[in-house]
């Protein structure tokens, strides 16, 4: 049996809102040691999502035996919208479940709401992602990256990222013109999450589809910072830290014709 209680429903709500537009169906793997893990790839096979909600993200977590919950995220999202952000949220499943029980508890009122979501058998291949060495890594405020991804998409369907040891440059060239934003590393002692950190083994220039970057920044509400790891001619990793765990996106770059 699985029983996981979140202190606040908002965490799972934000996670599902962050991924449901990229992947519709996915398997949630549940185990006592790893908590909940998900790997899912979008239909175009360009964007991969790797989610880990450690048991530390829950107020209470027990999973007697390993379980796979096949979920339609659109349906789960509808059910999660029934609860308030501050409610306790408990998810419960039997050992061979055909449904997931979702329970919201209002902390002040004596109100308990229960929903049952039908589960599905989902066939999905799992990709092996080795721990890669990256050419460079940037950590920056998540909202700042989101603004760049959204603003630059209005100019071009591609966004080029150029990293050198003393700057990161976002470049967009489109029909109406072009634009670039340059950020320099700095440390904000009072608000560390406002800092921009660049770690560099070698400079990198990569181009990504603006559409996919805009899917990724839907995770902005989850974390104050985002870490972007880039390697020449390889998928980029965008990581949002959870209180205990992470949401990672792997995005394949674009190549010159």
């Amino acid at each position: 049996m699985l029983e996981g209680k979140f202190e606040e429903a908002s965490l799972l709500k934000k996670v599902i809102e962050s991924i449901k537009d990229s992947v519709k169906l996915c398997n949630f793997n549940c185990s006592q040691s790893k908590g909940i893990t998900v790997q899912a790839i979008d239909d175009s096979r360009v964007l991969l999502i790797a989610l880990k909600i450690d048991s530390g993200s829950f107020q209470e977590f027990r999973c007697d035996r390993d379980l796979v919950l096949g979920l339609d995220l659109e349906s789960l999202s509808k059910i999660l919208k029934q609860g308030n952000n501050e409610d306790y949220l408990t998810i419960i499943a039997e050992d061979s479940p055909d449904s997931l029980l979702v329970v919201f508890e209002d902390k002040k009122k004596d109100r308990i709401s229960e929903f049952s979501l039908k589960l599905m058998d989902i066939d999905s291949d799992v990709l092996t992602i080795d721990d890669m060495e990256h050419d460079c890594s940037i950590t920056m405020p998540a909202y700042e990256f989101a603004k760049i991804a959204r603003d630059m998409k209005t100019l071009s369907e591609s966004l080029q990222i150029i990293i050198t040891k003393d700057s990161v440059k976002f470049n967009a060239e489109g029909q109406i013109g072009s634009g670039s934003i340059i950020l320099k590393p700095h440390t904000d002692m009072e608000k560390p999450d406002e800092s921009i950190k660049i770690e560099l083994n070698q400079p990198v220039v990569l181009t990504f589809g603006a559409k996919y970057l805009n899917d990724i920044v839907k995770a902005t509400a989850l974390s104050s910072t985002v870490t972007i790891k880039l390697t020449d001619k390889a998928p980029a990793l965008f990581e949002y830290r959870l209180p205990s765990g992470y949401l990672r996106y792997y995005l394949a770059p674009k190549f010159d014709d």
């Binding site: 175009s44 360009v46 991969l48 291949d125 990709l127 992602i129 071009s156 181009t207 998928p235 394949a252």
Partner: peptide
């Protein structure tokens, strides 16, 4: 610009 790459070229299916 450019041709969109796919993840299959980089990650193995297990």
């Amino acid at each position: 610009g450019g041709v969109q790459g796919r993840l299959d070229g980089f990650f193995k299916v297990s």
